[in-house]
């Protein structure tokens, strides 16, 4: 190795030093270098994630208003959230509705898209690019674009419905269709998830698929008994990432609906934001945030627990 040579030449290490010591010092040097390279990430995690989390946990037991002094109020914020908050239940319901709806439909359509992208057709890479494209559009830009699509009078979506002779919709401007509309927007940007599915699909063992052919199975049998079990780890991964992301939905409410109409899109994170930055209740907002954290943690834990019943890893039953 060059490095070894350099050490010898550069530092003039006496030749009688045993080979063992040299290797050990080399190991040490490599370890130090490794830590230094990892340092930015570790420091980032400590300072910008773990640190603020601890700070917000402490804050959640105070009535800190950013401005002015703060007092320790114990569990008062948590008690107020569950007993007095007139927005808590509504925003929690809205968030659950969106999180489960968008995760389910995003996963489903991502899987379908991935199956299509996996087919050996002409222009395969063009299709793959097309489906991935929405992912690279910044969230705010895509939200503004969709504001136009959702426009009840001149929006493309209603124009299409009208053309097909179907009744038009109010989309995000109606309480009952607002969340389904936002789910549609999430489905549109499922390209990232689809790409991960695609990687999973390409790992499906060809010999097993051929075995189904030989045994006289059809496409459905291949899909149901070979493809699906093989990609369960990918489904598992996408499910968890999707759910965590969806629980933290915010941009749509901030950019498109301001939580409306009639708080139909008043996402939980939007409530946190409003309490923290518009109402100056930073302590209260921290308590809200910790409740969300616990909810997400519980769901993640539940999915992990259930995974041993339905996720199959190669080489294991």
């Amino acid at each position: 190795m060059n490095l070894e040579k350099e050490i010898k030449l550069g530092t003039g290490v006496p030749k009688e030093i045993t080979k063992k010591t040299k290797i050990r010092s080399l190991h040490r040097k490599e370890a130090i270098a490794g830590y230094i390279f990892a340092l930015p990430a570790i420091l980032g995690l400590l300072l910008w994630t773990i640190g603020p989390m601890i700070a917000s946990l402490i804050m959640s037991f105070t009535n800190w208003k950013i401005i002015g002094a703060s007092e320790w109020v114990g569990f008062q914020n948590y008690v107020n959230i569950f007993t007095n908050d007139i927005y808590f239940k509504k925003s929690l319901w809205v968030t659950f509705y969106f999180a489960f709806g968008s995760t389910f439909f995003t996963l489903l359509s991502a899987l379908i898209v991935a199956l299509l992208m996996n087919m050996n057709v002409k222009g395969q890479s063009v299709f793959r690019t097309m489906y991935y494209l929405p992912v690279i559009v910044p969230a705010v830009a895509s939200n503004i674009l969709w504001l136009w699509l959702f426009n009840p009078d001149f929006g493309l979506l209603n124009t299409i419905l009208d053309f097909l002779g179907l009744p038009t919709l109010m989309w995000i401007y109606d309480e009952s269709t607002a969340i389904p509309s936002l789910i549609l927007l999430s489905v549109w940007s499922c390209g990232g998830t689809a790409l991960i599915f695609l990687a999973g699909l390409q790992d499906v063992p060809k010999q097993l698929l051929e075995a189904v052919d030989i045994d006289g199975g059809n496409v459905w049998h291949k899909f149901r008994y070979v493809t699906i079990p093989t990609i369960t780890p990918v489904i598992f991964f996408n499910l968890i990432m999707g759910l965590i992301g969806a629980f933290q939905a915010f941009t749509q409410a901030y950019v498109m609906t301001e939580g409306g109409p009639n708080n139909a899109t008043f996402f939980y994170v939007y409530l946190i934001f409003r309490e923290a930055f518009l109402q100056n209740n930073m302590g209260y907002a921290s308590a809200l945030a910790w409740i969300l954290f616990i909810i997400i943690a519980l769901f993640t834990l539940f999915i992990f627990r259930s995974s041993k019943d339905w996720v199959h890893y190669g080489g294991r039953k």
Partner: peptide
């Protein structure tokens, strides 16, 4: 605080 109650509720009237 009252506006936060009023504005979304009135959405239902305006819609």
């Amino acid at each position: 605080k009252v506006n936060q109650i009023l504005t979304p509720a009135l959405d239902q009237l305006w819609s």
